[in-house]
């Protein structure tokens, strides 16, 4: 069986500085993969190359066997990849429901279908009672939730989560983890998450890729990663053991 997402030796330099260097990993359909590493390790650079924000200098990205290297973000979305933004980007002047409808239009033929799909996703994420509020009035945890709702409404095969737990309280993190587990279990959603909150990564990810100074230094199960000496030296520190 071939992988849903195949990242094959992608590199990116900014003004001569290597931000990502021959990064490769694969993600099978239905899997949850965590991408971790210290600040400046190149996580967001890798993420942006997959999401089409900028093309890699070298290497290919394949989704479902199709080459999506260098495609625009809207084409990446239509290839079945949904994403959230680390710094949330709600459509502030629109209501919460309208925000999600915009996402749902990517997967629905008519506006009426998109409205129904939006209501379903809002229910799923517990935002239904805030549906008519303007998005700029939401609290940060709710805005993070809205990011996820919008991306889910596009009905992606693969969901890219960029530090979606950052800034959440532990109870809110646990709620998010539960939602992603449910989505993964019930609809087979494949997830790639960049995350600093180890509590979430360890709870969610089946496999973890560790980046440091733009290179993959370790790949494995959460237990293997937690026990890896290189990873503990550069990132996790001794207390994670």
């Amino acid at each position: 069986m071939s992988a849903l997402l195949a990242v094959d030796g992608i590199s990116k330099s900014f003004r001569g500085l290597k931000a990502a260097s021959a990064v490769s990993f694969e993600l099978d359909a239905g899997a949850i993969l965590g991408l971790i590493g210290p600040n400046g390790a190149g996580k967001t650079t890798v993420f942006n190359m997959i999401a089409g924000v900028f093309p890699p200098d070298e290497g290919r990205v394949r989704m479902d066997g199709r080459d999506i290297t260098g495609k625009r973000p809207d084409q990446i979305c239509r290839a079945g990849i949904g994403r959230t933004f680390q710094i949330v980007k709600p459509f502030g002047g629109l209501t919460v429901r309208e925000n999600v409808i915009v996402g749902a239009l990517a997967s629905c033929k008519t506006v009426a279908d998109a409205e129904r799909e939006a209501d379903r996703v809002l229910d799923l994420l517990g935002l239904a009672d805030k549906a008519r509020q303007p998005a700029h009035a939401l609290t940060l945890p709710d805005r993070k939730c809205l990011e996820v709702a919008r991306a889910l409404a596009t009905r992606p095969k693969l969901l890219l989560l960029d530090e979606v737990m950052a800034g959440l309280r532990p109870t809110e993190t646990d709620r998010m983890v539960a939602i992603f587990r449910q989505l993964n279990r019930e609809s087979g959603l494949t997830i790639l998450l960049i995350e600093h909150v180890m509590r979430a990564v360890m709870a969610l990810a089946q496999r973890i890729v560790v980046l440091n100074t733009g290179e993959v230094i370790a790949t494995g199960t959460p237990e293997e990663i937690a026990a890896d000496q290189k990873v503990r030296d550069c990132y996790l520190g001794e207390e994670a053991a």
Binding site: P73, D74, R78, K89, G93, E98, V102, A151
Partner: peptide, 26 residues
């Protein structure tokens, strides 16, 4: 305003990057 295009326009007005990430050909 109530059509697909209307939603696309208002999404672009509010945040173009987010609009594009949701599959809109901006």
């Amino acid at each position: 305003l109530g059509s697909r295009l209307g939603y696309y326009w208002r999404a672009i007005r509010e945040d173009q990057d987010a609009a594009q990430a949701l599959g809109i050909d901006t």
